[in-house]
Nucleic acid binder design. Structure first.
Length: 210
DNA sequence: GACCAGGCACATC
DNA sequence: GATGTGCATGGT
């Protein structure tokens, strides 16, 4: 397995090159994006983030002060906007309750502990927590998403329906424990998924991995 | 018009 | 503990 996962990475990287993830500037923007992109096309998320940026609201203090209804209206293009406005508020409560609204303070926390804290926030599941840890805080944790699952299943590396932690361990046991590798690998899987053969239905007859 | 998209919580059995 | 359902916009 070690060989297979590393080989897949090499193929993806040589084919697509570095992905420069996460597509967001500040750590806070990445965290907001991680919640907004839940089951949602990134293009729609960008519209929502642009709305927040235009109003200069993409800062912890500003978003915290913003009424949930106004937040919902601004993030409308990202879909599930009422749910996501509520989830962003829960996350902001967490950020201020435990870290005084300071991302830097959060970054200093030990990441396994931080992961448990994030998972306890309503609206933040394993993938969102790990995206925040890896991409916003540069912690060495591998993100599992729908594309990753499909890749593993379709290439016979895991069975369908295997739980998140098992798949995450699969990557983390078999790859070098490097933030940049975890970052690039997951980003490449999304690239493969969007542009090639990890759609929900249908297969790819010209899979770059073959 | 159908299908898809970088999930998650909650209800129900 | 497993399975089903609601949440919603915008692109292809």
């Amino acid at each position: 397995m070690t060989g297979k996962l590393n080989l897949i990475y090499k193929k993806l990287y040589s084919r697509f090159g570095p992905q420069h993830w996460w597509p967001g500037k500040s750590a806070f923007e990445i965290m907001v994006g991680a919640i907004l992109t839940q089951n949602t096309n990134w293009q729609n998320v960008e519209k929502a983030i642009d709305n927040l940026k235009r109003q200069k609201l993409l800062q912890p203090q500003k978003l915290r002060a913003l009424p949930q209804e106004r937040l919902a209206a601004l993030i409308r293009p990202a879909g599930y906007y009422n749910v996501k406005a509520r989830r962003l508020k829960y996350f902001l409560n967490f950020l201020f309750d435990f870290y005084g609204g300071k991302i830097e303070k959060m970054r200093r926390q030990q990441f396994r502990y931080l992961r448990r804290q994030l998972l306890a926030v309503n609206g933040i599941g394993a993938e969102t927590a790990d995206s925040i840890l890896l991409y916003a805080l540069k912690k060495p944790i591998f993100v599992i998403d729908a594309y990753t699952r499909r890749m593993l299943f379709r290439h016979g590396l895991a069975q369908e329906g295997v739980d998140y932690d098992t798949l995450q361990n699969l990557f983390m046991r078999n790859l070098k424990n490097k933030v940049q590798l975890f970052n690039e690998y997951h980003a490449l899987l999304v690239k493969l998924g969007k542009d090639f053969c990890l759609k929900r239905q249908g297969r790819c007859d010209r899979c770059p991995l073959k």
